[in-house]
Nucleic acid binder design. Structure first.
Length: 414
RNA sequence: GCGGGUGUAGCUCAAUUGGUUAGAGCACCAGAUUGUGGAUCUGGGGGUUGCCGGUUCAAUCCCGGUCACUCGCCCCA
């Protein structure tokens, strides 16, 4: 096709798609605000260190997916691959620790150099919420509740399901890691190549492996929930109690894990089976260690991120468009009048469309094509009587109304 | 980064074992209808068959490469 293709893994949002995009983001923002989460904006790029430090030097995102470049001042800059690190950085930069608890919402483009696939782009968009400074499990419950409410309002919750798990506290995780590694080490011959590599740096990820051979081994592996200490068990059960209390259906998935070190206690994912391989619509959890790792004051945090494109794919109906009012002038004098009239209608807050050429038939066709609700027909006979002909384009009914009260008449059609 | 599939008009798709001017529907434009849209009819514009190379008298078709999309792996939202 043409040479003028968009860069691999990027795409344009033309009006129909943009409307879906806006529906998802605006609905998310509105739901988040209902829970007290206020919108923040952070730069689209950061010093690379921000992501390296928080995501870990061994994570796939950092090792092979970041868009990193050196700017003209010699700084190493990275286009953000996710939002949480940026929010945490802003939290520290802004000295906001004294204002906790804080509830933030954000949305915007993220960048990862991955192989494009359905539901996976190189520039994609996320919405997210972060709750900073709340160590209580009620915070985890609230975060999940916002997420569910967001999907419900978007209109896709009925095709999604929630899975939760506990990663426990640091002590539990260390203890379990040792048990798991010693178990898996007995199967070094049989583990897949990928899992063998993960055995050293990220053994919990092996629990999530899709390799058939690995699955058999994992099936008999020690279960993490049996190695949680009492504090972790108590925390998790309070989260579950909270979910029950507000009626959020959920399943516990003991193999649901997060790759990053700073995650602890609650982790959850909301998935849909209608998306293909990229099933996760929303993922999140508790990250009590994050702000500390970045050099800020130890601050508990919990939040989620959601893929806007993936939500858009689940939307079954096109969000409604506001139907315009079409002006159909006939003749030079009417055309001059229509320009003024269109301006008046728009100032009144109503959407008006003024075609700029064609005879009456063509203008009516255009009115129909843009899905106008009503046509304002203005010709010599109307001007002589100081009226306009209003044609209801759904019913076909037509009547004359005085130009004086045109705005009032048109308002009925909104 | 790895493996499979697919690229023909704006969109969805045809085109005989490789064969002569690459077709259709939808969409678009014009006319039937110079003061009335949707429906119908008639006509019209629109293609470097993704791109580059190879085989052949001849390539949309076969081969190689490349780009893009797509399904899975990986990773994640």
């Amino acid at each position: 096709m043409s040479q003028l293709q968009p860069v691999r893994g990027t795409h344009d949002l033309l009006p129909d798609e943009m409307r879906r995009y806006r529906h998802v983001v605006d609905t998310t923002r509105a739901a988040a605000e209902c829970y007290g989460y206020l919108e923040v904006g952070t730069p689209i790029f950061e010093f690379s260190e921000v992501f390296k430090r928080t995501l870990g030097d061994t994570s796939d995102i950092v090792t092979k997916e970041m868009y990193t470049f050196t700017d003209r001042g010699g700084e190493t800059i990275t286009l953000r691959p996710e939002g949480t690190a940026s929010v945490a950085r802003a939290f520290i930069s802004g000295g906001l620790a004294q204002h906790v608890p804080l509830k933030y919402f954000y949305s915007g483009p993220m960048f990862r150099y991955e192989r494009p696939q359905k539901g996976r782009m190189r520039q994609f968009h996320q919405t997210g919420v972060e709750l900073l400074g709340v160590a209580d499990p009620l915070g985890d419950v609230e975060i999940i509740a916002v997420g569910v409410e967001v999907l419900r309002r978007i209109g896709i919750w009925d095709r999604c399901y929630l899975e939760v798990n506990s990663l426990g506290d640091t002590e539990s995780r260390k203890a379990y890691r040792d048990v798991l590694v010693s178990y898996l080490s007995g199967y070094k011959e049989k583990l897949s190549k990928e899992s063998l590599e993960r055995l050293e740096r990220n053994p919990m990820r092996i629990l999530d492996s899709k390799d058939e051979g690995d699955k058999e081994i994992v099936a008999n592996a020690p279960v993490y929930s049996e190695h949680l200490n009492q504090a972790s068990l108590d925390f998790f059960s309070r989260v579950l109690e909270g979910l029950e209390a507000i009626g959020i259906p959920h399943a516990i998935n003991p193999r649901l894990v997060r790759g990053l070190d700073y995650y602890c206690h609650t982790c959850f994912e909301i998935m849909s089976d209608e998306l293909g391989a990229q099933r996760t619509v929303m993922g999140g959890g508790r990250y009590d260690g994050l702000v500390g790792i970045m050099g800020g004051p130890e601050t508990p945090g919990v939040g989620w991120a959601s893929g806007v494109e993936r939500c858009m794919m689940l939307l079954k109906e096109e969000p409604a468009v506001r139907r315009p009012i079409a002006l159909v002038p006939i003749g030079d004098e009417a055309e001059r009048e229509a320009l003024i009239l269109a301006n008046t209608i728009r100032r009144a807050g109503l959407p008006a469309d003024l075609g700029y050429s064609g005879n009456m038939g063509k203008r009516m066709k255009r009115a129909n094509k843009i899905n106008a609700r009503v046509a304002v027909i203005l010709g010599e006979t109307e001007l002589a009587k100081n009226v306009a002909a209003l044609r209801d384009l759904d019913s076909g009914e037509q009547r004359e109304v005085p130009l004086d009260s045109l705005i009032e008449s048109l308002a009925h059609y909104q």
